Amino acid sequence: MRHNSTSPCFTCRSGTCGVSPATRTARRRGSAAHRAGKRVLRRQGGHRRAARLGPRAVATVPGIVGRRQGGRGGGAASAAGRRTAAGTGAVPRRDNRRPTGPGRVADDEDCASLVAATVETFGGVDGLFNVPADLSAGTLGRDTDLLDVPLEVWRRSLEVNLTGYFLTARHAVPAMLARGGGAIVNTISGLVLHGDRRRVAYGSSKSGVVALSKHIATRWGKEGIRGNVVAPGLVLTENSMTNNDEQYRATVFETLRSPRFGRPEDIAAAVTFLLSADGEWINGQVLPVNGGTGLR
């Protein structure tokens, strides 16, 4: 029996996916089937991102785009696809220290090594995709409002979510200038566009990313560097399922002008476009990818 429109499914929201009410109830209760579904979602997100972004030589979290000298992808695309599938855009360090990744994006030395290793391996840097954020229970989970947020949560959020973006761009821009230009895509959140009653540190850090991106576009746009931002809406990832309960997702869905929530592939497509030559005349912009939540 198919579910009806009065009790919609949070996976398709269309009322036509063939999921029975009993199955939906089991999923809401955290059944084995629901957990398996989330594992499938995670696998699909990673591998589809790799398939879509790999041909354009894009890696993620943070990602550096490079191509081998004399080529238009090739080895760079293959390596980027492997890194994306593994869920990290880190380039291994040659001194045996842990490579740059989401946990070390605020480390200046690691960010410098990431760019240097990319230049050495691929002959240059053509683009940067920044998406890291501290979404841990100890940081985002304790991010409340202005009056109650712990000071260490505020500082940690700024360190990773803003300073990390600053450092990767600081080291990537000179490498892009050496090649005659490049593209930077930074990731924020719909909270920046619409506000939130909580998560003051997270929202403030992401607001700073917008200003940073516009600075890059304004300062180096004439020299061929683009700085843009993607602002995802609610995407059904492992983190969003953990951090946002059923009631919150239902509330958000009422604001959508699309029949479903976002998928990782939706964000990947927007980022790929902004990094590509097709997005060459877009600079200093914030692109909402949110299913129509809020019209601008």
Rank of each mutant, 00 (worst) to 15 (best):
P288C: 04
T121K: 09
A76C: 01
R83F: 14
R42M: 13
G294R: 08
G180W: 07
A79R: 12
G66R: 12
Y248T: 07
T60F: 01
A106S: 14
A211T: 03
E152C: 01
Q69F: 06
A22V: 14
E159A: 14
T251A: 14
V200F: 00
G208D: 06
L287W: 13
S205H: 02
P55T: 02
R82I: 10
A201L: 05
F122A: 02
G195K: 09
R82T: 13
G262K: 05
D134Q: 02
G294V: 11
V153Q: 03
G63H: 06
R68C: 02
R199H: 11
R94V: 01
L236Q: 08
R83C: 07
H215C: 06
T218C: 02
Y202M: 04
N290E: 15
G74P: 13
R93V: 01
L177D: 05
V65M: 10
V19K: 13
G54E: 12
A178N: 05
G127E: 01
W154G: 02
I64K: 10
G30C: 09
G195M: 09
G262M: 11
T84P: 03
A169W: 11
G71S: 15
L147M: 11
F166C: 03
R199L: 10
V61N: 14
E246Q: 11
T25W: 04
A57Y: 10
A51E: 15
D245P: 00
E254A: 12
D107T: 03
L193A: 15
S113M: 07
I225M: 07
S7C: 04
V61H: 06
W220M: 01
L162V: 05
T251L: 14
A90T: 10
D126Q: 04
A90M: 08
A201G: 10
D134M: 06
H34C: 02
T163R: 14
E238H: 08
